[in-house]
């Protein structure tokens, strides 16, 4: 039972970066902008947070730096696709390659030693009393960002589906012209959502380098530490039908499989480890096949609003 608690705790942690990025994608997408650059923005978030952490040693300021980087990239992305009407898929892919290129370079020229940080980076919070119970002990003593992510998920859900603002956001994702003619500003809404969503993605990347890897490194050129989690987050968003709560469930599934495969590798040494490494991608592909048609994507997703 103790092992189960450990796996669930690890699954929660693995789900956080995917969930943060997917929340960003769903917020951006609800307003009608398809941000396929999540991978690159996560990478920039991961690198900038880790560089800031090794230079300052403060986790708060490194998260802040990551958010700033995300806001900046979001602003650039929004300008390109909203004001210049660039093809959103091409812009997304560009942001991916640009993001990975710039982060690996910026990290390398600092001449920082490639080491794993020892000890805790993000502040912890153990839920009083409940974290004494043996089985759920691991689950309920996590870092603050993990709890905040799940709170953020609820906030985004309330924002999108329970408020007047959310109605405006979803309306500009379905029919920006209607928003315009009823006196709203679809461009400004899209700008704000793209920038905020991009900040979420960068935060997801920061969690990846500060908490999960506790290091920054490049597994291979052009595939950064995010290892395609940005694209998996898009799959998760479609799987969750653009609804933050369902997206949360889908990210927990992928995160859980990711945590489980690490354990399975040790349990079955006879089976090649890459079979297990492949599992999260197989699950992602399978879930895409099952849910792609049913997902209710915003009708104007990826289309520029030309007045």
């Amino acid at each position: 039972m103790i092992i189960v608690g450990g796996i669930v705790a690890a699954g929660l942690r693995m789900a956080v970066p995917i969930l943060l990025a997917a929340l960003g994608i769903s917020l951006t997408g609800s307003s009608g902008v398809l941000n396929l650059g999540a991978e690159g923005i996560m990478e920039v978030g991961a690198a900038s947070a880790f560089i800031a952490f090794t230079l300052t040693g403060s986790s708060g300021s490194s998260l802040l730096i990551a958010v700033f980087a995300g806001v900046f990239l979001g602003l650039l992305f929004a300008f390109l696709v909203i004001d210049l009407y660039t093809d959103q898929v091409l812009a997304g892919l560009t942001f991916w390659i640009f993001g990975v290129g710039i982060s690996s370079y910026m990290f390398k020229i600092q001449k920082l030693p490639i080491v794993t940080v020892k000890g805790e980076v993000l502040p912890r919070l153990s839920i009083p009393f409940l974290s004494q119970v043996p089985i759920i002990k691991d689950i309920l003593s996590q870092d603050l960002l993990l709890y905040s992510t799940f709170i953020l998920m609820v906030i985004v859900w309330v924002l999108l589906y329970k408020t007047r603002w959310g109605l405006m956001i979803r309306a500009s994702g379905h029919s920006p012209a209607a928003v315009k003619s009823s006196g709203g500003y679809p461009r400004i809404i899209r700008y704000l959502c793209t920038i905020l969503g991009s900040a979420f993605m960068a935060l997801g990347g920061a969690y990846l380098s500060l908490e999960i890897a506790k290091a920054y490194y490049l597994p291979s050129p052009l595939i950064g530490i995010a290892q395609l989690r940005g694209f998996i987050a898009i799959v998760v968003t479609i799987f969750g039908s653009w609804n933050p709560l369902k997206i949360g469930a889908a990210s927990l599934l992928i995160g859980g499989v990711d945590a489980l495969q690490l354990r399975l590798q040790r349990m079955f040494p006879g089976i090649p480890i890459y079979f297990f490494v492949m599992l999260p991608y197989l699950i992602a592909l399978f879930s895409l096949i099952v849910t792609f048609k049913k997902a209710e994507s915003p009708q104007s997703l990826g289309k520029p609003f030309i007045e």
């Binding site: 660039t86 390659i97 640009f98 993001g99 290129g101 690996s104």
Partner: peptide
């Protein structure tokens, strides 16, 4: 990685050129 940095920048510039055309 400097080469990848340059490649990323070049791609971003190509994107901006496409945008100007659109």
């Amino acid at each position: 990685e400097a080469a990848y940095f340059l490649i990323g920048l070049i791609l971003l510039m190509v994107l901006i050129m496409y945008s100007i055309e659109t």
